[in-house]
Computed example of a mutant assay.
Amino acid sequence: MKRLYGVTTAMVTPFDKDGQVNLDKVQQLTEFLIGKGVHGLFPLGTTGEMVRLSVAERKSVAETVVRTASGRVTVFIHAGAATLEDTVELAQHAHAVGADGVGVVTPFFLGANDLELERYYVTVASALPDDFPVYLYNIPQCASNDLKTEVAERVQAACKNVVGIKYSYPDFLRTNEYLSINGGEFSVMQGADRLFLPALAMGCDGVISGVSCVYPEPFVAVYNAYLEKDLDKARELQRIAIQYCEVLRSGANMSYFKEALKLRGIDAGFMKAPQLDLTEAEVRELERKLSLLPTF
């Protein structure tokens, strides 16, 4: 089964001014990212404003990314939704349209206990073929539910297609626990862009990065330097990547991602209400800060 690795980009979702998904711009963004050398694509997650999209819209985006990528990079569709039924439907759709796998965030907003989380994931994974890979996705600061190591272990033991986890919280003790699942054969993808290099050193397979949707270059360069065992170069590149994270606010406000992409010549559309686009003054300040950063 395929696994995620290297720089897997969490994609924004381009909307028109009226809030409709713009699939032409989804296609253009997909081509841009592949051209910049990312290793994988992860649409429709937190960075993709998934909670603002209908099931039908999410299916259309998934189809567009898979079709455009056409096997050139690994594509895992994020399928986690507000209901179990929608999650299963989206995961099965991802398989049907030719995605390489899916990611599934924990149930969000309403609290779920350990047993509920376990049964949720077992139900989703069991609704898919045994050879179709699933990544768990733990982002407790947003989802309000934390996936403990022992729960992830039980899910993996019950469902062999659960091959890894995206962990978007800066806790290296927990990260190390995840890495021990399945005798150390459990794939862990770091979700905190600023921790990419140290996560690689711990044994993680890579990063699922929102900032790389705008500036893939520093992250791809970090990974290449790490593979070349040039740690001094990798450290310097990681410091540069962190500067980009700081200017772009690490995904705390996706309008920074979309406006920065426009500054790069990639029209990523607008935010979907109730989120607002940046003001002209904010865009000018963003452009000024980006102009001070190292270029690739």
Rank of each mutant, 00 (worst) to 15 (best):
L200S: 15
N176R: 11
A221G: 04
F219W: 14
R284T: 00
F109I: 09
V75F: 01
S291P: 04
Y5S: 15
D100V: 08
V105R: 02
F270E: 08
L286Y: 11
L136P: 08
R239G: 05
R235E: 11
L276P: 00
L29A: 09
S187H: 12
D146R: 08
E285R: 14
H39Y: 10
A158G: 02
G265T: 13
A112K: 07
Q156G: 12
E63N: 09
A82C: 08
Y169K: 10
P294Q: 09
A96N: 12
A10D: 06
G48W: 14
Y169F: 15
F132L: 05
L44I: 14
V222E: 11
A152S: 14
A125P: 00
I266L: 12
K59C: 05
E118R: 13
M254P: 02
L261H: 07
D193H: 10
T175W: 00
L292E: 15
I181W: 12
P107N: 03
V207T: 12
T13S: 10
H78G: 00
V151P: 02
V163T: 15
T46I: 08
V104Y: 01
S168C: 04
V247H: 07
P218K: 02
V134D: 12
G71E: 06
D205P: 00
K262V: 07
E280K: 15
A241Q: 11
G164H: 11
S187K: 05
F76T: 00
F186H: 05
Y121F: 15
D205K: 14
T64F: 07
L227S: 03
L200R: 15
V211A: 06
Q20C: 15
N182E: 04
N176H: 08
Q92D: 13
